[in-house]
Amino acid sequence: MDASDEREFAEYFGARRDAVRRTAFLMCGDWHRADDHAQATFVALHRHWRRIRGRDDERVLDAWVRRTLMRTVVDETRRPWRRERSAPEVPEPAAREQDAGDAVATRAALVTALRAVPPRQRAVLVLRFFDDLDVAAAAAALGCSEGTVKSQTAHGLAALRAALGNGIDDLRPAS
């Protein structure tokens, strides 16, 4: 890469790194693994920068990054040495301060519940509801049909409801 390509990549990286890292965290539920996934995504982007950047459309570039990130996260869950193992006893949760607020508790419960959703369904939920993509854009990012996105959304929301308990009735897919 020449100096102007490196400069353009550095600008794009600076503008998007936090959003990509946040999306990766929502996908995997662990900040350390989220950093690894974001790094792997940006390394792949740097490798293909000239080919992808040549299209001069930010939406294409963002879609490529989202798709690469989703593939990285989903592929990692398929590796046998990365699978989570159940513990014989569930540890007691750490005591929370009372003044932390309901928003923090709700967010923590949601992130914990997202970990219980299968990876592909979690990817669809994150793209649809956290990245605010429509069905067509989510299908393009994941490389699947719109029908698959719709069914994965329905199944993912059902799994999320089950993980959260029956108290959440307002999680409905937007049309």
Rank of each mutant, 00 (worst) to 15 (best):
A19M: 11
R82M: 13
I52M: 03
A34I: 08
P118M: 06
F25P: 02
D75R: 15
S4M: 10
F129W: 03
A38D: 00
W31P: 05
H32W: 00
W49I: 01
V124H: 00
P93R: 07
W64T: 03
R33P: 00
V111E: 15
I52R: 03
D169R: 14
W64D: 00
T72E: 09
S175E: 14
R85V: 15
A63M: 12
R82Y: 12
R71V: 04
C144P: 01
A108Y: 08
E8S: 13
A10L: 11
V117L: 09
V60H: 09
D62T: 03
A100E: 15
Y12C: 06
R107I: 05
A40W: 06
V117N: 00
V90N: 11
R122M: 06
A87S: 14
A38N: 03
V20Y: 00
A123C: 07
D5I: 03
D134M: 05
S175A: 14
D99Y: 15
R115C: 10
T148P: 00
A15Y: 11
L142A: 02
F25M: 05
R53T: 02
T77V: 07
V20M: 10
A163Y: 06
R7I: 09
A100K: 13
S145P: 00
A158G: 04
A139P: 04
R122N: 07
G14S: 14
F42T: 01
V43K: 08
L142M: 09
F25V: 06
V60A: 13
F13M: 07
T148S: 09
K150W: 13
A154Q: 10
A113G: 10
H46T: 03
V111G: 04
A158E: 09
E97L: 14
R21Q: 08
R172V: 15
V149Y: 00
A136W: 07
T72D: 05
T77S: 12
D35R: 15
A163S: 11
R53M: 04
Q98K: 15
A94E: 12
V65D: 00
A108M: 15
R17A: 10
E76N: 14
D30K: 14
D132P: 00
T68P: 02
R71S: 08
D99I: 12
L45V: 02
G54W: 04
E92F: 11
R59N: 08
L61G: 02
H155D: 13
A3L: 15
A19T: 12
D134P: 05
R22F: 05
D134K: 05
V43A: 06
D131Q: 12
R22S: 13
F129I: 04
Q39I: 04
V74D: 07
R16A: 10
I52D: 01
A87F: 11
E76V: 11
I168Q: 06
R71I: 05
A139L: 06
A123Q: 04
A154R: 15
